[in-house]
Design a protein around this nucleic acid. Structure first.
Length: 439
RNA sequence: GUCCCCAUCGUCUAGCCCGGCCCAGGACACCACCCUUUCACGGUGAGAACCGGGGUUCGAAUCCCCGUGGGGACGCCA
């Protein structure tokens, strides 16, 4: 069997849509699974709509997702150029060949292709046999001389020796046009595989650029893990059978195959994506987590945290790693570590101060911490428990007021870890200041 | 309107091709309980689906037909 050659052929619109990402991913997976070639081809025949910046959106998104291409812009290859705007000669040549068949004519300044009228049979690797008859002749060159999508798409697939066309189901109806062109040009037919579409999570229809969660750059900006997005995307329309969901990429590559792809559309679910992201975040190695967090603080321009001692920043992030669902929670979640000017939630204060005798607890705690060992969580825990026991109380009686005084909120990472990292001076200063302010 | 595709819990899905092991399994979400130093994580449990109707068959979620519903395509966009 000849080597598999698949292609992903986006047009540079300035956006990289999640549906495009999924199509790219399935092509990439199939290439990697079969030891084939993954080609990136830019379909930029549409006049002034394209620019370098738009191209970079495509390159950056694919790179971020880890979908490296074997042939295409930036890496070259034997079948280039890989931008359609640079392939005019190839299209002219194929147009002449098509003219030779007598199936081409001009009308209103545009160039038309005469259909055969025969039913076209698509032998689809996902859907099985699909039959469709093309009804009307169609334009292959516009009156401005530019070739049309259907034509360039087929010509390039022939010229680039593409063996498998894996694309969204929205192209299934177009395929009869493409088949007519392949046959008229005397080229061997590729294997088609039409993927189910991704539907918007609320309301009718497929996901579009304007829908919530539709753009890859948004996930990148929010600090999502690309491996989590990739794992989630795989599962939208494919699964290895059985119960497996979270899988390393090598495993997915090994198991992926076209016949296992679903035939029905799937609705996008951001909650499930968020869960997948959290699962990957929890097991991220410390160095990568800290680097990811720092990159996010930089994007947010969170200067206080960025100016803090890097070792301190690292400890804070690692303390919070098991507590968060996404890195974009981090700046707000950790703000009080990096400033004394943190806000105290008035609702939490009212609630905590109304229960028991929190002032007494804080005074006891402050006194105990004066000589406490801050080097480990266990040591701090022991001190707090001893203090509590001496007053016939438990750890929980100190927890809420202490957390309020030191962080201004009711939720956060482990109290002892927070104390240890903040250190004796800062913790006691905050306790005393809080007591003074609370009268 | 015409043509094409699809149809299992709210959502993603396993099972369907090769009918009985399925009064349908997993995951997300939701709820309850447990764990617990808050919040999470984790654990246990609950509720929740074979779109409808006809066939075929001893037997259908699984095969066939018709409805219905959902989606897509019908451009000198890609």
């Amino acid at each position: 069997m000849p080597q598999v050659r698949v292609r992903f052929a986006p047009s540079p619109t300035g956006f990289f849509h999640i549906g495009s990402a999924r199509t790219a991913l399935f092509n990439w997976l199939y290439a990697r699974h079969t030891g084939g070639v993954f080609i990136l081809r830019i379909e930029d025949t549409d006049k002034e709509r394209n620019s370098e910046a738009f191209l970079n959106v495509i390159y950056d998104s694919l790179t971020w997702l880890g979908l490296n291409w074997d042939e295409g812009p930036r890496v070259g290859g034997a079948h280039g150029p890989y931008r359609q705007s640079e392939r005019a000669a190839v299209y002219r040549e194929h147009l002449e060949r098509l003219r030779g068949t007598g199936r081409v004519y001009e009308k209103d300044g545009a160039t038309y292709f005469r259909i055969s009228g025969q039913p076209q049979v698509i032998d689809d690797a996902i859907r099985g046999r699909v039959e469709r008859t093309e009804e009307k002749d169609f334009v292959i060159f516009r009156s401005d001389g530019q070739p049309v999508f259907h034509f360039v798409n087929v010509v390039d697939d022939i010229a680039m020796a593409v063996t498998h066309v894996i694309r969204g189901e929205d192209h299934l109806s177009n395929t009869s046009k493409h088949l007519e062109l392949f046959k008229a040009l005397g080229a061997p037919l590729p294997v088609y595989a039409h993927l189910p579409l991704i539907l918007k999570q609320n309301g009718p229809g497929k996901m579009s650029k304007r829908d919530q969660g539709a753009l890859i750059e948004e996930y990148q900006r929010r600090g999502f893990l690309p491996e989590a997005l990739v794992n989630f995307l795989c599962l939208l329309g494919w699964n290895p059978g059985g119960d497996r969901e979270k899988m390393p990429l090598e495993e997915i590559v090994r198991l992926f195959d076209l016949p296992a792809v679903n035939q029905s559309n799937a609705r996008f679910d951001e909650k499930k994506l968020a869960h997948m992201n959290m699962a990957y975040l929890l097991e991220l190695p410390a160095d990568r987590f800290v680097a990811l967090a720092r990159a996010h603080f930089e994007r947010q321009n969170a200067t206080a945290a960025l100016q803090a001692d890097p070792a301190f920043f690292r400890e804070v992030m690692l303390l919070c790693q098991p507590k968060i669902k996404a890195v974009d929670e981090l700046p707000a979640y950790t703000a009080y570590f990096f400033t004394e000017e943190f806000a105290v939630d008035p609702k939490v204060r009212d609630k905590v101060m109304a229960k028991g005798d929190p002032r007494a607890r804080l005074r006891e705690l402050s006194a105990a911490l004066e000589t406490a060992d801050f080097s480990t969580d266990a040591a701090l825990e022991a001190v707090i428990k001893q203090t509590a026991a001496a007053h016939g109380l438990g750890f929980g009686d100190y927890q809420a007021p202490a957390r309020l005084a030191v962080s201004g909120t009711a939720v956060g990472p482990n109290l002892t870890g927070m104390f240890r990292i903040l250190g004796r001076e800062r913790v006691r200063r905050r306790l005393e200041r809080f007591l003074a302010a609370a009268g």
